[in-house]
Design a binder for these strands. Structure first.
Lengths: 199, 199, 199, 199
DNA sequence: AATGAATGAGAGTTCATTCAT
DNA sequence: GATGAATGAACTCTCATTCAT
């Protein structure tokens, strides 16, 4: 049966079409991009009428924004490491890196979608504010490291660029089939990244 | 007169419309994206009739591909350092990095265009093969460094991902206005990059 | 509680949803026109499900027709003056005019609705027949006046056109805010109308 | 051959598609109303592709407005009587009335279109300003008559309502097939109208 | 060779109507 | 009887591509 189960109540099965639409849109946007994906295609994949999409989302733009915010938040939560007293920054970084890779590998479509739609002109103010907020949190992390003289004394934006650049390129090569991501290679990448930013 | 001079032949002035079209398309694609740029807009900017575009290019897709291949090759040539006997790899890397930054900063539209269209579904087989080919040349460079035990003994694809990731993310932050690119910061980035890959 | 009470039967309160729908439709059609009013909007205003409308009316077209017939008949009844022996035609006309104005001013929505939907392509045969019938009754009235040599000896259809034309244009200007309708002005209009048709 | 001739040049026949579109739209809007007329229907009737309409008009709304302004101005010009020294107002009114009837009878579609679209919510500011302007000119005419003590001393807006009301109802009955418009009847209507407004 | 008017397929969106609950 | 989620035909409009000039 298509569509995921929302609830079973009184013996009745209720399909959550909203979820189906979001999932179909995620896959199609990730694969074909925003402009390359017709609303009717999303409808078809979600097995709903195209009018149904407009019951749940104001328009195509709102749909892509909801998707973006949802997964942006998901990945931010997924990589968050619970604070442990006296945990060295090095360990924290290592832990975060591992979670990040885990998330990306387990949610290929979501991760690809986020990367590909990061600078789309259809992203609205709210989505951009979420971006800024999450970006700020990461910056703060590196700022702490810099003040603790663990991380290089250079512009934190550059630190960020280094880390995210390495990560996203690595994932890209992985999905392009050019690079395997064995635990060993993941470690090597993380180590290289650390070498780039450590003092 | 608009349009660049191609040649003067038999007393007639011939404008190189093909060049005009490519230049107009480059600027518009870089600024508005592939889907956001109507063919008629390119024609207007190039000061030709829109039908004329179809004399020089089969369709919009071929146009974007020709543009992509041209600039992809240009940047590859621009960063190529002429071989000097006994030049240390470190110097070679340093030199390449500087040229790369130079190219990007002096050809903002071309660079932006390349990055933005790198994964478009309209890129054809030929463009992708060019990508592979250039990718391979860089790989070979790092392979040499690895065998010389200057660069880390890890998958050259990962080395590549590290270098290109850092570079493209740095440029992105620069164009976004988040990061200044002073000579000092460019050096810092290059140094960090080297720290990431050196043995 | 919303909706008017239809009846209390067997201890159950029955709301007259049909009336609610007709009233909501009247207000919306008058304000926004037939095409500007979505069925779901009528349902919302009437506080019923949109499917409920289709229990009482075959479709949107039947709804507008029922409404039209109802109010067309209402206004015809409202302007009817009970016959009094020896009442001069002049007095009858004067009386009718006053009632007509009264009706229009006290039932703005109904009056506006009738005027605005008078020539809609959605009006069916039955509605048009009702129009013809009422039209015929008025014609008969003027025919009497003509034979009594009180009214001009011209085609009664023209007499009708004169009277209804003046009235509807006057009301239109009133609703548009261009013309006040003081008792004095109403009298002046009636007098002018009489001057137009009297012998 | 469909479409009117724009010009014959060098033996070539050029069809003026803009005119074809306007004519087709006029007929359809007059017959079916603005909302009842799909753009594709106009295209079909004008024998052009539907995209062609958008070469000549920004959108459906601009099309209806252009049409409205054009015919509103045409009718205003058509009824204008050239000023003759000492011409009595009565004669002027008589003359105007005749021209008005002539115009309406010779341009049924245009006249019907104007009446039916006079209060559409799609009319833009410019169209409404034209309405106001023409309306003002007629008002001034009646104001002159009032001050010359030829016309009743009542609100000129009411005078206008009387005249336009009679005229439009008369035409409506004519087109509905209820009323013939012989020269005699046209005269009778004019005379009745004058009786309504003369002092 | 060059043009740009013309095309029509296909986009996003609305809404009258249906029907499972 | 009543609901409102679901539908898909039909709407307005865009734009890559063609072709008569």
């Amino acid at each position: 049966m298509n569509g995921r189960l929302k609830s079973v109540f009184g013996g009745r099965i209720v399909l959550d079409k909203r979820e189906d639409i979001l999932q179909a849109a995620l896959e199609l946007f990730a694969e074909r991009g925003y402009y390359g994906t017709a609303v009717s295609l999303i409808a078809e994949k979600a097995r709903v009428g195209s009018g149904t999409i407009y019951r749940y989302f104001q328009d195509k733009e709102q749909l892509v924004n909801e998707l973006y915010r949802y997964w942006k938040t998901e990945v931010a939560n997924a990589v968050k490491v619970e604070y442990a007293e006296n945990m060295p920054l090095r360990t924290l970084f290592h832990e975060t890196w591992k979670r990040w890779v885990d998330f990306a590998m387990n949610n290929r479509e979501a991760y690809s979608f986020l990367v590909a739609h990061h600078h789309g002109p259809y992203l609205d103010k709210v989505s951009m504010e979420i971006n800024e907020k999450i970006h700020g949190e990461y910056l703060a992390f590196f700022e702490v490291g810099r003040q603790a003289q663990v991380i290089k004394d250079i512009n934190p934006e550059l630190i960020m660029a280094i880390v995210t650049g390495i990560f996203s390129e690595m994932m890209r090569e992985y999905w392009a089939g050019h690079l395997q991501l064995t635990p060993e290679i993941i470690e090597q990448a993380e180590e290289a990244c650390w070498h780039a930013i450590r003092r």
